[in-house]
Design a protein around this nucleic acid. Structure first.
Lengths: 225, 225
DNA sequence: TTGAACTATGAAAAATTTGTGAAGAAAAAA
DNA sequence: TTTTTTCTTCACAAATTTTTCATAGTTCAA
């Protein structure tokens, strides 16, 4: 989910640096292009670019042309940077499938907020999939694959595994596990965790030993490496 | 696909009329509300509103509050009308899930272009005929074929199946199903879903097992492959 | 090495959830 | 209104999950 790639296209290196700095701070990976041709080259040689931030005014190919070219092959979200907020421009942009508009000068906060919003709309929702050492945990589908094979887990087992996987390498006491996976009003025996761990381990096959026992404390999920 | 309903909320009747006129020209159906309370009433008593255009400055409930209230139950796209283009406002809006921003004064062309764009993003992709694994669902004709044979579904059954089919592979809790297929003010037993699922399954013949039970959670529609 | 403390495991018991048919309530049609 | 259809509730059986428990196996520290 993290480290989405964003391509920033602008002929002014100062502008690119400014945008990049703020995006990097938010944990995005930023690629740069200084004109339209380069932008297209970079976009098509990187298959996993999640968003393009595109200046309109550029030498060689301008923003509109880049946009049109890319739209022939891809629905990647595009945010346009525009100097003047010209109405014609905006209309043209919507026709070309531009997702957002930001007029220069803009505040970095606005920029980051829009980037977040666009990405939430596009990649955001699907990315509820966690993958760890051959285990694929799909929260939306409520489904788990181990080595590409579906395994049937009960609700509790699913939640327990989710908790483990989202806390890799962390030693988890039984109390902590109870508090996070069970309802707060559960007052039964903590040893029920052991039983669930047993079932998880057996259902997960050899990957079951990712769930380590920490003697005297609880469990820890850790992928051998 | 045509005649989508748009709710326009503004305390100035002149502004409502202006917006309405342009939207009606584009073949949208326009509902009006003159304050936040009315907006919420109208929205929740009409299940098929596709977009809300919301003024921020209003007596009683302002735009933010209306937005927040509606967002608790619905992802309906919202376009905000704002007098000043205040940066703080925009940030707040993105957090609240506002889809677009239009500053007053705006040109009608801009308005219509944005409305189109937002609707294309949201309902746009929605097709009138959905086909999935031998099931053909025709929303317009309100008719369902399984293996090329018509089957008779009641209204609720049809809506439930539609919801399932448009959410393939997604684990749906009973609560979620209730919120999306039933009116928001339904406070009956969630087990009524089970009964409808039973009937759907039996009417769908062997395709009925596309509706999977997720024990302890709800149901999931999934075509075996 | 030994024993106390802890964990693993299989099986049984308890609890929860779902499937189903039927009946009652509500809504729509005649 | 009456009739018909649809929707909801209910009760109970069936299916499944969760917890408990007894026993066997491990670990750790003196």
């Amino acid at each position: 989910m993290d480290n989405l790639k964003i391509l920033v296209v602008d002929d002014e290196s100062r502008m690119r640096k400014l945008v990049k700095d703020f995006l990097v701070k938010k944990n995005y990976t930023v690629l740069e292009a200084e004109d339209g041709e380069q932008a297209i080259d970079i976009f098509f040689s990187n298959k996993d670019i999640s968003l393009i931030i595109l200046d309109i005014m550029m030498p060689k190919l301008d923003g509109w042309q880049v946009c049109k070219e890319i739209r022939q092959y891809s629905k990647v979200p595009i945010i346009m940077l525009t100097a003047k907020s010209d109405e014609k421009d905006e209309l043209l942009g919507f026709e070309l499938g531009v997702d957002e508009y930001i007029s220069k000068p803009f505040s970095p906060k606005i920029l980051v907020a829009r980037v977040d919003a666009v990405l939430r709309r596009t990649v955001g929702i699907e990315e509820e999939v966690i993958e760890v050492g051959g285990i694929v945990l799909d929260k939306v589908a409520h489904q788990v694959k181990v080595d590409d094979k579906n395994i049937d887990l009960s609700h509790k087992e699913f939640e327990l595994l989710t908790y483990f996987v989202t806390n890799q390498g962390v030693a988890l006491s039984r109390e902590k596990i109870l508090n996070n996976v069970w309802n707060y009003d559960y007052f039964g025996d903590a040893r029920t965790i052991d039983t669930h761990v047993k079932k998880l381990r057996s259902k997960m096959g050899e990957k079951g030993n990712y769930i380590k026992t920490i003697w005297g404390l609880g469990y820890k999920f850790e992928v051998d490496s």
